[in-house]
Write a protein that binds this DNA or RNA. Structure first.
Lengths: 205, 205
DNA sequence: CGCCGAACATGACAAATGTCAGAACCGGCC
DNA sequence: GGCCGGTTCTGACATTTGTCATGTTCGGCG
């Protein structure tokens, strides 16, 4: 019986977690961590160099987030399955992740034992999404914002005044105010700043 | 030769990390993890029940953050040394932590090996603060905000309108605007929302 | 004591923001 | 074609927010 060993790439910016995880996964006979990375670009480089079977990526990393890395991997190493691990799961991220061809999506609240199982699951070609995150994503639904509304809201995210947003979006100030207003009412917010916060929580920006 | 074993409490909301960490620390002969917790209140309860020598606390946990837990521990279990571990260290947090009697403060980018050493360090009665975080804290300096300015800014943190802030702070609207304005100018922000963001980054709210 | 600076507090005015009604455009549909 | 609903875009108006001048209180200091 040839137990196939799964070659794993581990990417997380927190050394403490990455190291601990590598140690725990190594206890499993059929898993071997072939590479580690602390940033998005580093994860990509490591993947190219080692061509792992499964890439375990943190969602929030310096440089490029897990979904962006997954998109690049999809193009360059289609055989490499991606499993995203995240601390605070926002509904929109899950959608984007699945669109990027990610095979698994779980919160960091799972146990290491469970993570090992999931690595095998995605390696076998199956998909797995944490039920609670999936429920959140479904109940949150799609973004009700139109393209312009989302664009303007994104420009407003850092607290810039309307005049600056108008300049960056090449729109009249009145138009910008209008979009911000309609976006806020769609999100049930009283002003654009809470609207930005809500859209962030839902992963819509 | 009686090697003293150090009894450790581990608190982190991410099960994956907590479990991995517990496993790694258990590899050290002189360390034993006697309790684990996923939230602030849970950490307190566990500490009361097990009276550990050292408490390793995540800074951001549901319920009550690491510093608040540390404050309570200081009062109830003065013998228990607190070591704070954080993912994204903001200067102000370090100051608050030290004021709360915390003995160690390190980012999650340290290795598990190093963490084990630091647990022994604080158990021995010494202090340790990550040099980089310390440098950030020093360069960021103290908060230039007065008590009222900070209070009002905190109420404004969720994007509430001035009228609501005024009500919560029991101040006239004009007064609230005044504090927000002076706080914004002290922080070099153009409006209160960017002021909130900056104060957050510095850990001053 | 009398003076000074800092923090606290307020209302009036100017500027930025939110709201509204409506015009132009586009795609689907009868 | 003609109609309809939705998105995009705009300026005018009302509201909210930011700024300023001013007054008050309080603690330190010559």
């Amino acid at each position: 019986m040839t137990t196939t060993t799964v070659r794993v790439l581990l990417a997380d910016d927190e050394h403490l977690i990455r190291g601990a995880l590598a140690a725990l996964l190594s206890l499993e006979d059929d898993l071997v961590v072939v590479a580690e990375a602390a940033t998005g670009p580093e994860a990509l480089a490591m993947a190219r160099a080692h061509a792992p079977d499964v890439a375990v990526l943190d969602l929030q990393m310096p440089g490029a987030d897990g979904v962006k890395v997954a998109t690049s991997l999809r193009a360059e190493l289609p055989a490499c399955k991606v499993l995203i691990v995240t601390s605070h799961g926002r509904p929109g991220h899950l959608k984007r992740a699945l669109a990027a061809g990610v095979r698994g999506f779980v919160p960091k609240t799972v146990s290491a034992q469970r993570l090992a199982e999931l690595i095998r699951t995605v390696h076998a070609g199956n998909r797995y999404v944490d039920p609670e995150l999936a429920a959140d994503a479904i109940s949150a639904g799609d973004s009700p914002l139109t393209a312009r509304e989302a664009e303007v809201l994104e420009h407003a995210a850092d607290g810039a005044p309307v005049s600056e947003i108008a300049e960056r979006a090449a729109l009249a100030e009145g138009t910008v105010r209008n979009y911000l207003s309609s976006a806020a009412s769609k999100l049930g917010a009283e002003n654009r700043h809470t609207a930005v916060r809500i859209a962030r929580e839902r992963g819509w920006v």
